[in-house]
């Protein structure tokens, strides 16, 4: 990869992030994130770049990057689809959704489509069991209560560059309680 570096603007931002924490080490998460937003991944050379920018040991940045699955240690597709197959989602058909996606995109979980558009990953519980099955798009929005049709529309939209909107999910029980309380 040719010539990796942060721009002056990014370096200023890194300084600002550093100042927010008592130690430079503590800013590792944020700066890795900044780097991932720029490059789309934090491969080893990017980790080294981050370590240099923060002046912390490379091993430390490497350890942090490898701990969190949200940091991509290899190049991924433009859209990373994290399909939950943990207990609740699994019971509600998480694997059907995963199979369907795999079939539609012609790849398996862990792989990226040839055009570099999509990556599918199988992940554990994302804390959205209440509206299972679900998936997350590139560390961002959740798409909930999935059906095969919903998956097809999602793919269509993404191909056209339309990210799904953030969906505020109602919690029926909580709402009932709130209503009762406000009466």
């Amino acid at each position: 990869m040719a010539d990796l570096s942060f721009t002056q603007e990014e370096l200023d931002e890194i300084e600002r992030l550093k100042d927010k924490f008592p130690t430079a080490k503590a800013a590792t998460l944020r700066v890795l994130w900044l780097a991932q937003n720029k490059y789309g991944h934090v491969k080893e050379e990017i980790q080294s770049l981050v370590a240099e920018a923060l002046d912390v040991p490379k091993s430390h940045v490497h350890g942090v990057a490898r701990f969190y699955t949200q940091y991509y240690k290899e190049e991924k597709g433009k859209f990373v689809l994290d399909v939950c197959t943990c207990l609740s989602c699994q019971l509600c058909g998480g694997y059907d959704i995963l199979d369907h996606l795999e079939e539609e995109l012609g790849i398996e979980a862990g792989e990226t489509t040839e055009d570099g558009m999509f990556t599918i990953q199988e992940v554990e519980c994302l804390g959205a069991c209440g509206y299972a099955p679900m998936l997350q798009v590139t560390n961002g929005v959740y798409v909930n209560n999935l059906t095969k049709e919903k998956v097809d529309t999602l793919l269509e939209n993404l191909k056209n560059g339309n990210m799904p909107e953030f969906e505020s999910m109602a919690m029926p029980e909580l709402e009932k309680r709130n209503q009762a309380a406000s009466k």
Binding site: E44, E45, S48, A51, P57, S59, H60, H62, G63, R66
Partner: peptide, 21 residues
């Protein structure tokens, strides 16, 4: 020398060196 760190998580973690080190 700060040459080692633990990588990955849960039952698959182990120590290793930083990138290129």
């Amino acid at each position: 020398t700060h040459q080692l760190t633990i990588v990955d998580r849960g039952d698959s973690n182990y120590p290793t060196t930083g990138p290129g080190e």
